[in-house]
Nucleic acid binder design. Structure first.
Lengths: 185, 185
DNA sequence: GCATCGGGAGAACGATCGTTCTCCCGATGG
DNA sequence: CCATCGGGAGAACGATCGTTCTCCCGATGC
């Protein structure tokens, strides 16, 4: 097994276990046995747990940005429809088995107070999400405030879908977004 | 020092430390030295850390409900103004020094996957918050969907205010709530 | 064939965790 | 005055954490 596939396996495993149990509750040994990558190799690729956590979050950040952009590009219609499509994207995400909230929100809550790098990654990720919405609202000629408000709805939906275990918040947020969009016209 | 004041001191200290660093990063010994309550007494009042965490969250739940109700009762005006007052209440909260997000959202993210009692307390708390909004929207003759959407805005504001370190989301949410309220008339 | 090297498995290490135990002191009751 | 008891301080215990080290085996180069 070469270093690259080992890294991928470790990131896959760590992302899953961190999501299921939280970061601090998952030991490096659990990642080792679940991924099949030896501790020696693991520390070769990620010299500390903190660096592994950052790598997991950074890869997830890129994946989310790419998924969101791809989903938006597939939308037939203009910025109005593209904004609403974000909440359909949320609905698909919330319906995935084992969904337990946004990795960045959870990581910030658990580690943001003591690990500035994690706090910074979470902040950047949320800013990128807001920027994606702002692209669409700009195209509509709406003020940046609207993008902020659409982001509030989406992040509230992530939290409540996680806590309640229901995908319902995605549809509720979509309807509210429609009202805000219509009011801004 | 009697058991009751010891319990209060421990709850105060634990609530503060859990908020600053997260739950798992705070040891019982840190709570002992910061509160001045001996370990013996600490375990007399809270027989395990899990029970202490639950007690902290339950007391916080009651405090939030009471604060929200008191703030609402102080509002001059009807249900419309009472809904908007919730976001003013959020703004005051976000501006408190050291604010780092909602304790229930953070505890759920850190422990919700492995500690069902914590997940249940978080769920109940968020449901109570939604119910407070639903009281007002019911009085307006609006459908329950509106209360869900107002709750999404509020929870999104808690998350983004914590991550960005700015109280701005409270005002953004308040404006969005006003639009949703006006559209429901 | 033999020496060398890299990696796998897992033991080992020091730190820290949640929890319990020991020791000691001061207050209380007769 | 003495015996008893409760609580404070903190040592101790077993478990587990992140991290490193040891041992061993298979592949590779000459």
């Amino acid at each position: 097994m070469d270093a690259e596939t080992a890294g991928t396996k470790v990131l896959d495993t760590a992302e899953r276990l961190f999501g299921e149990r939280g970061v601090q509750a998952v030991g490096m040994d659990a990642i080792r046995s679940a991924s099949g990558v030896s501790l020696k190799r693991l520390y070769q690729v990620f010299p500390s747990k903190e660096l592994l956590v950052e790598a997991v979050l950074r890869r997830r950040d890129e994946a989310v940005r790419a998924s969101l952009a791809a989903h938006g590009a597939r939308v037939a219609g203009g910025p109005y429809e593209r904004v609403l499509a974000v909440y359909d994207w949320l609905a698909d995400w919330f319906a995935e088995p084992g969904f337990r909230g946004c990795a960045f929100i959870n990581a910030f809550g658990e580690l943001g107070g003591g690990t500035p790098s994690v706090a910074a990654i979470a902040r950047d990720h949320k800013e990128a999400f807001r920027a994606h919405l702002a692209e669409q609202t700009d195209a509509l000629g709406a003020p940046p405030l609207l993008a902020d408000q659409l982001a509030l709805l989406a992040n509230g939906a992530m939290v409540l879908a996680g806590i309640t275990g229901s995908p319902g918040p995605a549809a509720q947020a979509r309807e509210a977004a429609r009202v805000l969009l219509d009011a801004a016209r």
